[in-house]
Simulated assay, not measured.
Amino acid sequence: MFIEYLTNLLGTVYKVPGTIDPEKSFLELEVDSLSLAELGAQLADDLGIEVAEEDLSSTTTVAELAGLLESRGADIPA
C-alpha cells in the first residue's frame, strides 16, 4: 500500500526515472538530500506524520520507509 504511494510520488513529483525498485536506497535511486528533505516535509503535510531526518537518509530504502509509515499508523490521502 505505502510502497505504491511512495513509488508514485517519487516518479511523478521527484522525477525518479524508470521503474522504482522498493528495495533500492534513495542513494541508488539518485534522490538527493534536498529532495529527501522535501519528501519528509511532503509526507508530514500529506500524512500528518513527522519523519525524522535520520529515518529518511540516503541509505533508506523505499520499502523501509513504507514500513515506517505503516508502523506509525499513517493513512494514505484520498
Results as ranks from 00 to 15, higher is better:
1 M>G: 13
2 F>W: 05
4 E>I: 04
4 E>A: 13
4 E>G: 04
7 T>V: 11
7 T>L: 06
8 N>S: 12
9 L>E: 05
10 L>Y: 11
10 L>V: 12
10 L>T: 10
11 G>F: 13
13 V>N: 08
15 K>C: 02
16 V>K: 00
18 G>K: 08
18 G>I: 13
19 T>H: 07
19 T>I: 07
20 I>Q: 02
24 K>W: 10
24 K>A: 11
24 K>Q: 15
25 S>L: 15
25 S>E: 08
32 D>K: 02
33 S>H: 04
33 S>I: 04
35 S>R: 12
37 A>E: 12
37 A>I: 14
37 A>D: 11
38 E>R: 04
38 E>Q: 14
39 L>G: 13
39 L>K: 05
39 L>A: 06
43 L>W: 03
43 L>F: 05
46 D>G: 06
48 G>R: 01
49 I>M: 05
51 V>D: 03
51 V>Q: 01
51 V>H: 02
53 E>L: 15
53 E>G: 14
55 D>K: 07
57 S>M: 11
57 S>E: 02
57 S>F: 01
57 S>C: 08
57 S>I: 09
59 T>Q: 12
62 V>M: 10
62 V>G: 05
63 A>Y: 03
64 E>A: 06
64 E>D: 09
64 E>T: 10
65 L>P: 05
66 A>S: 09
68 L>N: 03
69 L>F: 07
69 L>P: 12
71 S>M: 12
71 S>I: 12
74 A>F: 02
76 I>S: 09
77 P>G: 04
78 A>I: 00
78 A>T: 04
